[in-house]
Amino acid sequence: MTGGSGGIGGAVARRLAADGTAVVIHYSGGAARAEAVVESVTAAGGTAVALPGDIAEPTEMSELFDAAERRFGGIDVVVNTAGIMRLAPLAEMELDAFDRMHRVNVRGTFVVSQLAARRLPPGGALINFSTSVTRLQQPGYGGYAATKGAVEAMTLILARELRGRDVTVNTVAPGPTATPLFVEGKSEEQIAGIAAAAPLERLGTPEDIAEAVAFLAGPGGRWINGQVLFSNGGIA
């Protein structure tokens, strides 16, 4: 899984490992965080390894897929949580910030999805990540939401292109989730206001999102294909 050293990625890794899945935790710049996730998985009796790579570079990601196949004999599930977010009104956003989001969120998803499409066996699953902001249309999120809209389009079309392969392709779109990245730079008042917006009147947790991924990755999700699953407590 890509982005496995992040708050949501780490929770997904631990949840899938709890189901008996051997997990490859990809990271780009967070080696220490990735190793911490590996330690938490193995401490709970699971199997995990951390491997580096630039998500937007086909050669590096192909080598990561090769390493996973050599170590575990194959790849059954690909979860693509890697992504970055830069916020600013569209009229004020620096083009470099938008380009970086596009490189990671769009090109990176394309690279990983292409490799998954070529390598996943029958019964396999690809799970990409979008965001509920594509529905919320919040000011300041235009550049970020644009990259995630591209992820949704790419994912849903790929599901149709893999007709006859018995491989499911879906996207999980989290709402506001209590991760360090979300909390950073926000006041307690801002966080409370965002939490109150959902009918369940709380923020999501990384574990909430991990449950959605585990469903799509497991036998219960085999009839879910070509969909965007909004895991957001009803906020949108």
Rank of each mutant, 00 (worst) to 15 (best):
23 V>N: 07
139 P>N: 06
179 T>W: 06
195 A>K: 02
136 L>P: 01
48 A>P: 05
177 T>D: 01
32 A>N: 05
135 R>Q: 15
197 A>T: 05
118 R>F: 00
76 D>I: 07
85 M>Q: 12
78 V>M: 09
32 A>G: 10
99 D>T: 12
69 E>P: 02
46 G>Y: 10
113 S>F: 03
170 N>C: 07
64 L>P: 15
165 R>L: 03
67 A>K: 08
138 Q>A: 12
64 L>M: 12
209 I>R: 10
153 A>I: 06
200 L>M: 14
206 P>W: 02
118 R>Q: 15
118 R>L: 15
16 L>S: 10
185 G>K: 03
34 A>D: 03
82 A>T: 10
145 A>V: 09
110 F>T: 12
16 L>P: 13
42 T>D: 04
54 D>H: 11
47 T>H: 01
160 R>I: 04
220 G>L: 08
67 A>I: 01
183 V>E: 11
35 E>P: 10
9 G>K: 00
41 V>G: 05
213 V>Y: 02
203 L>A: 02
41 V>H: 06
92 E>T: 14
125 A>M: 08
19 D>T: 11
233 G>L: 10
101 M>D: 07
156 L>I: 13
227 Q>N: 08
114 Q>P: 14
177 T>H: 02
225 N>Q: 09
57 E>W: 00
122 P>Q: 11
170 N>G: 07
198 A>C: 09
156 L>V: 14
179 T>L: 03
156 L>C: 04
115 L>V: 14
216 L>C: 09
112 V>P: 13
236 A>Y: 07
30 G>L: 11
190 Q>F: 07
228 V>K: 02
163 R>T: 10
186 K>D: 09
169 V>T: 07
236 A>F: 08
146 A>F: 03
117 A>H: 04
73 G>W: 15
226 G>S: 13
38 V>T: 08
72 F>Y: 15
100 R>Y: 01
25 I>S: 03
69 E>I: 12
5 S>Q: 06
100 R>S: 15
165 R>T: 11
160 R>C: 00
88 A>E: 15
162 L>I: 07
96 D>R: 10
74 G>L: 03
59 T>P: 08
193 G>T: 03
174 P>T: 04
177 T>C: 04
200 L>S: 02
184 E>L: 06
79 V>F: 09
182 F>M: 01
107 R>W: 03
196 A>H: 11
160 R>Q: 08
159 A>M: 07
75 I>H: 01
217 A>T: 06
217 A>F: 10
217 A>N: 10
119 R>E: 10
58 P>A: 04
218 G>R: 12
229 L>A: 12
211 E>K: 11
206 P>H: 02
169 V>H: 13
118 R>N: 12
98 F>V: 13
163 R>P: 06
33 R>C: 00
81 T>V: 15
108 G>R: 14
178 A>S: 13
88 A>H: 14
159 A>H: 03
3 G>K: 02
148 K>D: 06
178 A>G: 06
8 I>G: 04
89 P>A: 11
60 E>K: 00
29 G>S: 13
126 L>V: 10
25 I>D: 02
27 Y>T: 12
185 G>Q: 05
120 L>K: 08
172 V>K: 02
47 T>Y: 00
92 E>G: 02
196 A>Y: 08
180 P>F: 01
68 A>Q: 02
